[in-house]
Computed example of a mutant assay.
Amino acid sequence: MTTNTADTADIEAAVLALKEPSSLEIRPRYEGSNICTWIGFKHVNYLVEEAVLNHLRQAGIAPGTVYETYGLCTDIVDIDTRILHAFHIDDTAIAEVKPHRKAKDGELVLAVTLHVRRETLLKAVTSTVRVQLRLDPRGGGELPVPAALAPFAVDRLGAVPGWTPEPVEVDLAADDLVKELTAGRNAYAWKFRIPYWYCHFTERQQMSGYLRLMEEAKDRLVADRGVSIKTLLDEQNWIPVVPHSRITVLDEARMEEDLYVVLTVESVFKGFTYDSRMDTYVVRDGQLVQTATGRITHGYAVIENRRDWSLVSFDDRMNAALEGRSA
């Protein structure tokens, strides 16, 4: 297969087409209906991801094609999502994707809006998504990267341009490093071996893997403090809700590396919601390397019936757990 004018023209046209809005109707996956029929934040982000992939396909830059042809891996490296209305399992999301108004030249930053049909069409989700095309030398592409795609292509994933971590030398056992990462913080941490099913394009952890860890981090923290999700469900009919989440990839994390996940409770807002920060690290060549950071806002709702819920204020037990003290 050789480069020709038609190939170049097609890619140039596809990049121009990215500037046009796209739309998609999609249902949430059944897996995401964890409590009654409501869809959790992770699967809402999966809807956003599918809308972005559809936008690329409609433009003519399908992830499979650009990988097989040019060796470019399509990666979401930053996803910032606000949930305004809950999705239910039988809902249809009407997704609209367009370039973000603050995107600079050479950046692939998209604004995603999801609507849901109720009595009227409601804006349910807004999200900002940054995409990078990571050049994969494994196997090589059939063609060199076209000039039109070159501004989006990177040799290493990282959503923050120019970000370089301060090297931190470490010489600690895993348990000691977990203690070190939480020392003096209102935090919980654990070590996680990255499996292949958290990765894509052969070896790098993908955004959905970080979303899974963010969900697990909350579950682990509240269980550790005596207010597990099942405990509050059984005793108070409370469930967690998430109005906002964001994850930013800072560096790559690789299959079978040990990832250290730290969730830090940062603030409680008027006794109704609390903000946590998730940071992930690997130890590479004797140094601690941060691979991602993120934030998530949680509240609690009481289940009123199989369809409805309402936000509740934290009680003394929950406030004590979030502050890391005894009730």
Rank of each mutant, 00 (worst) to 15 (best):
R118Q: 15
R118I: 07
E119L: 07
E119V: 08
E119P: 03
T120H: 12
L121G: 06
K123H: 13
A124M: 06
A124S: 11
A124L: 05
A124P: 05
V125D: 11
T126A: 07
S127V: 06
V129E: 03
R130I: 00
V131P: 00
V131L: 01
V131N: 01
V131G: 02
L133W: 09
L133R: 01
R134W: 05
D136R: 14
D136V: 09
R138N: 12
R138I: 14
G139T: 11
G140E: 04
G140N: 06
E142F: 07
L143Y: 07
P144G: 11
V145E: 08
V145Q: 07
A147C: 03
A147V: 12
A147M: 02
A148V: 03
A150M: 06
A150H: 01
P151W: 00
F152L: 03
F152V: 02
A153G: 13
V154A: 14
V154Y: 01
D155K: 13
R156W: 06
R156Q: 14
L157S: 13
L157Q: 14
L157Y: 04
G158N: 09
A159N: 06
A159V: 05
P161N: 04
G162Y: 00
G162N: 05
T164M: 09
P165E: 15
E166M: 09
E166T: 15
P167M: 09
